[in-house]
Simulated assay, not measured.
Amino acid sequence: MDTYTAMRSFADSWALLAMTLFFIGVVVFAFRPGSRKQADHAARIPLKDD
């Protein structure tokens, strides 16, 4: 088995699963309860006067 075939096989199976799980985790993290307050606070940081 050459390197290309091995990498392609990995990308078609486990890497795709890992990327999908990562994406789902990011979406759940972004839309979790209570995250709006933190996001609003972070959005106002550049506009603060020190």
Rank of each mutant, 00 (worst) to 15 (best):
M1H: 11
M1S: 14
M1D: 14
D2K: 04
D2Y: 03
Y4Q: 06
Y4K: 05
Y4R: 09
Y4C: 01
T5H: 01
T5R: 00
T5Q: 00
T5G: 01
A6W: 01
A6G: 02
A6I: 10
M7Y: 03
R8D: 12
R8T: 07
F10V: 03
F10L: 11
A11N: 09
A11F: 04
D12W: 00
D12T: 04
D12R: 05
S13E: 11
S13C: 06
S13P: 02
S13R: 11
W14A: 11
W14L: 11
W14I: 04
A15R: 07
A15H: 06
A15S: 08
A15C: 05
L16A: 15
L16V: 12
L16M: 15
L16I: 06
L16R: 15
L16H: 07
L17S: 12
L17I: 13
A18S: 15
A18M: 15
A18Y: 15
A18N: 09
A18K: 10
A18I: 15
M19I: 12
M19H: 14
T20N: 04
T20E: 02
T20L: 11
T20P: 02
L21P: 02
L21T: 10
L21G: 13
F22M: 14
F22D: 14
F22S: 14
F22K: 13
F23L: 15
F23Y: 11
F23Q: 08
F23R: 10
F23C: 13
I24P: 00
I24G: 12
I24L: 15
G25A: 04
G25T: 02
G25K: 03
V26A: 13
V26T: 07
V26Y: 04
V27H: 04
V27R: 10
V27L: 15
V27A: 12
V28L: 15
V28N: 08
V28Q: 14
F29C: 06
F29E: 08
F29T: 06
A30P: 00
A30Q: 11
A30S: 12
A30M: 13
A30K: 14
F31N: 06
R32E: 12
R32N: 08
P33V: 01
P33F: 03
G34S: 04
G34W: 08
G34N: 05
S35R: 10
R36C: 01
R36A: 05
R36W: 00
R36Q: 05
R36D: 06
K37M: 07
K37H: 07
K37T: 10
K37R: 13
K37C: 02
Q38S: 05
Q38H: 03
Q38A: 09
A39I: 09
A39V: 09
A39N: 06
D40K: 10
H41Y: 13
H41N: 05
H41Q: 14
H41K: 13
A42I: 07
A42E: 09
A42F: 11
A42W: 12
A43F: 07
A43Y: 08
R44I: 07
R44C: 05
I45Y: 05
I45H: 01
P46M: 00
P46H: 00
P46W: 03
L47K: 11
L47D: 13
L47I: 08
K48R: 12
K48V: 08
K48Q: 12
K48C: 05
K48M: 11
D49G: 05
D49Q: 13
D49V: 13
D49T: 12
D50H: 04
D50V: 09
